[in-house]
Design a protein around this nucleic acid. Sequence first.
DNA 1: CGGTATCCACTTCGATACTG
DNA 2: CAGTATCGAAGTGGATACCG
Lengths: 133, 133
Amino acid sequence: MQTWSAGWTAGSRGPLEGDSQGGAADRAREIVGRVGDKWTVAVVHALGNGPLRFTEIRRGVDGISQRMLTTTLRALERDGLVLRTVYPEIPPRVDYELTPVGRSLLDTLWLLMNWAVVHTEDIDRARREYDAK
Amino acid sequence: MQTWSAGWTAGSRGPLEGDSQGGAADRAREIVGRVGDKWTVAVVHALGNGPLRFTEIRRGVDGISQRMLTTTLRALERDGLVLRTVYPEIPPRVDYELTPVGRSLLDTLWLLMNWAVVHTEDIDRARREYDAK
DNA sequence: CGGTATCCACTTCGATACTG
DNA sequence: CAGTATCGAAGTGGATACCG
């Protein structure tokens, strides 16, 4: 045994320069975390073809519960990414559609989805190899 | 009161065609959810400038706990996005670096980060307006 | 239809302590 | 330094019931 009380005061040049000091990158990461969440991605993607009603989204996004759909849509509405329109009819009708900013997000998300599709095999293989230990 | 027992068998053309049937889109969404998570984005981003040691990443990614850094790195390693290299020295030294696939992810994530930076103001304003009710 | 409200199982994550 | 182990607080999300 030994305690390595000496030897690690040296080294460690500072990488990441210009990152941790400015709050901008942190904010960006927060937003990415918000918007990169599973249900958000699915819902934004579902709205890509035009306005949809609540139930239509629910049918399109497989496995989402009513509560999570409501929560996700509220968050998107709050961030100005989705526009909610209520038609005071009987029966009630509510349409959801992407705002221009929401559509710009979809463009970017689509790139990420595409990355995922392209690399699905790589990832699956890597997982199998890793798990084989 | 009234129950609207009639009136909603009609309507609802099926949008989302080609989505919910193929499991590919679901898989892609799963991966996006995995990889779009807050800490993952931050760590991958931190590794963008080259290999880093555990502690260096921790310093660079503000607010991450030791446990979450370990967990995040293991998941990235398992998915083949990060390469972990152990140098059997005293004191111990472990380097983490992006694999080629990991770097391709970073390229895409960078676009998303950039989107977030560009639209931070829009989102903040939308939130303020929404909350003012 | 399009929600809201409630309960609760399960997961996530930070703090803390300990190891090679 | 680079972790692992454990615990408890907090958050997440599904199931269910009910309303305009």
